[in-house]
């Protein structure tokens, strides 16, 4: 498209400004994790590794990190299974109410976390009588996993169905023409086709669960904190802004290779 030099320059400047807007706050937190002062004042006061050492030696953040990873792993696994099943059903069949399925999937992520959180908390805390027996889900690791899996399904679903839509149905027919039966077609054609979409969806679901705080607050019960909960519980304590800076920076650094991998996977899928 022909655009004047001036408008190109202007658009370029806006893009640079957007990037600065996105990165300056992250830089500020990273820099503050090395400052001697125990505050969020800028500019920091010299350089020290004291807070990194302190964060490393404190049990709180480490336990929270482990807890977050465990919850995210199990929730991702459930979400991948449910999301993949739904996407195959949507791709292969016509049925009544089909258009509502994607609506149903996206609802837990589109509704405010506080509504989802309150709804699940209410359900988990009740004794549910199903006639033959009654049970109460209660709170703990399992309730967190159920809640997280619920809003992670949409990510897995979206990734897999996008891949299925892009891939040609001819591939399945070709496979059948070559004499493959259903399971072979799945093993040699369908599964390799969606493999990277599954991985990309899995990483996204993991990140979504790892990051979530609102629904988490309502469904975790007392006893343990996930990493975002730990940050939230500690940001206002007089001694800990410095340690929170360290934990925040650590999460950022940790996210870079994962983000890179996710990006590569979804790019790789674009050509298929």
């Amino acid at each position: 498209m022909r655009t004047s030099y001036l408008s190109r320059l202007l658009l370029g400047a806006i893009t640079v400004a957007t990037l600065a807007f996105l990165y300056v706050p992250l830089y500020v937190v990273a820099r503050l994790s090395f400052t001697k002062a125990k505050s969020v004042s800028w500019p920091g006061d010299g350089w020290t590794l004291q807070w990194w050492r302190e964060a490393w030696n404190t049990e709180g953040p480490r336990e929270a990190l482990m807890r977050s990873v465990q919850v995210a792993l199990v929730a991702t696994l459930i979400a991948l299974v449910l999301g993949t099943l739904a996407s195959f059903a949507m791709q292969r069949y016509q049925f009544f109410g089909k258009s509502s399925v994607s609506f149903l999937m996206v609802l837990p992520i589109a509704l405010p976390g506080i509504v989802t959180g309150l709804a699940l908390q209410n359900t988990f805390s009740r004794t549910i009588d199903v006639g033959l027996f009654e049970f109460r889900i209660g709170f703990g690791f399992h309730s967190l996993v159920i809640a997280h899996a619920t809003f992670c399904v949409v990510v897995a679903y979206n990734n897999v169905i996008a891949r299925l839509r892009r891939s040609s149905p001819n591939l399945l027919e070709a496979s059948a023409d070559l004499g493959a039966h259903g399971t072979q077609t799945f093993r040699y054609v369908t599964f390799p086709l969606v493999r990277s979409a599954l991985l990309a969806g899995g990483i996204l679901a993991f990140a979504l669960s790892f990051d979530e705080i609102v629904v988490t607050t309502f469904t975790s019960g007392s006893g343990f904190l996930t990493l975002p909960q730990w940050i939230f519980a500690n940001f206002a304590r007089p001694k800990s802004p410095a340690v929170v800076n360290v934990v925040a920076t650590f999460v950022m650094v940790l996210s870079i290779p994962i983000a890179w991998l996710a990006q590569r996977l979804s790019d790789g899928g674009a050509d298929t």
């Binding site: 996105l22 990165y23 300056v24 706050p25 992250l26 500020v28 937190v29 503050l32 002062a37 125990k38 505050s39 969020v40 004042s41 800028w42 006061d45 990140a207 790892f210 990051d211 979530e212 705080i213 990493l227 975002p228 940050i231 939230f232 940001f235 007089p238 802004p241 929170v244 800076n245 925040a248 999460v251 950022m252 996210s255 870079i256 994962i258 983000a259 996710a262």
Partner: peptide, 29 residues
Amino acid sequence: PLWAGYMVKTYAWRAMVAPAGGNKFAAEG
């Protein structure tokens, strides 16, 4: 930046907008 985490970024904005003096965080530094 999407991957940096909600809490991290929210916290980062606290460090961005904290006013000079008068608030307990600035006062500590």
